[in-house]
Design a protein around this nucleic acid. Sequence first.
DNA 1: AATGAAATTATTGCGGT
DNA 2: ACCGCAATAATTTCATT
Lengths: 172, 172
Amino acid sequence: MPKDRRSPGPAPRAVPGTTPGGLDEVDRELVRLLTVDGRMPNNALAEATGIAPSTCLTRVRSLRERGVIRGFHADVDLGALGQPLQALIAIRISTHSRDEIDRFRAKVPALPGVLSLFHVSGANDYLLHVSAASPDALREFVLDHLTADPAVAHAETSLIFEHVRATPAAPV
Amino acid sequence: MPKDRRSPGPAPRAVPGTTPGGLDEVDRELVRLLTVDGRMPNNALAEATGIAPSTCLTRVRSLRERGVIRGFHADVDLGALGQPLQALIAIRISTHSRDEIDRFRAKVPALPGVLSLFHVSGANDYLLHVSAASPDALREFVLDHLTADPAVAHAETSLIFEHVRATPAAPV
DNA sequence: AATGAAATTATTGCGGT
DNA sequence: ACCGCAATAATTTCATT
């Protein structure tokens, strides 16, 4: 995001080397490097950031403990796993009761093929990112798990032609 | 996705232990384990899958070389990095010339705060997942990089209230 | 392809600064 | 907080099956 000198909000940090969330420049560089390559060895991280390996270990451990780094995941080609199709499904919930929404939210992430679930503002309530083995399998998924759910008022499926992840990569 | 014995498409594989894409059960388990924990040590992977560490190393290396595993990435809390807001922006391209689409597609992933870009079927052409430091920064992003682009006919922003990643992200 | 053993390299705890 | 060092552990190569 571009800098914005006139916007309201938190005052700019005056302490040199300290950036949002109490992370200094080395922390931020470690996070960036591990976002690009999550398996980068501690030695290499240390050298790249100009600190000792033992210090680097402490830093990275601290980042994990503080929840800045939530975990590490392999980025997999789903096509190679027999799921060559991906879709985004915009969902409107019929009853906007808190219970229905909570139930839906709890159920969906465990459904087969689900990659992620966005709860969004606007005309739709959820946007669901799924993979599927075939158009038929996708159709079945929508019919069995979404259309059939009484909480779902409407589900509109868009096929994903291409999905480009930004670099450095972030949440899918 | 549920099994579907009546759908057309590739015939089911008859070779035991061989599943789509020429991956056997060990390969698939390695992929699954690395999807859950991308930093799981080779030793531990080997033990979990019942193969020798040296064999495991060869397997994982092969999975990477074949592109089944594209890479490893840290999963970062963007809020801790000063980007507490996320949004999905549905975009319609004005001219559907191939050149405009290609230019847009090439430009967007490098914009600041962009997490990923989906090229989709349906009424919208793209869905853009972004993070931002503040509502103001988000507004600026949309105005500067989307609305101002002559290729963009319409951009509709939805705030993300919650984003749940399925575990594991890859279907088992 | 898979393995065990050996060599190399990385991780990790700790005491000192 | 950071670092260097020493001990432990993991990775990687390679000869063999």
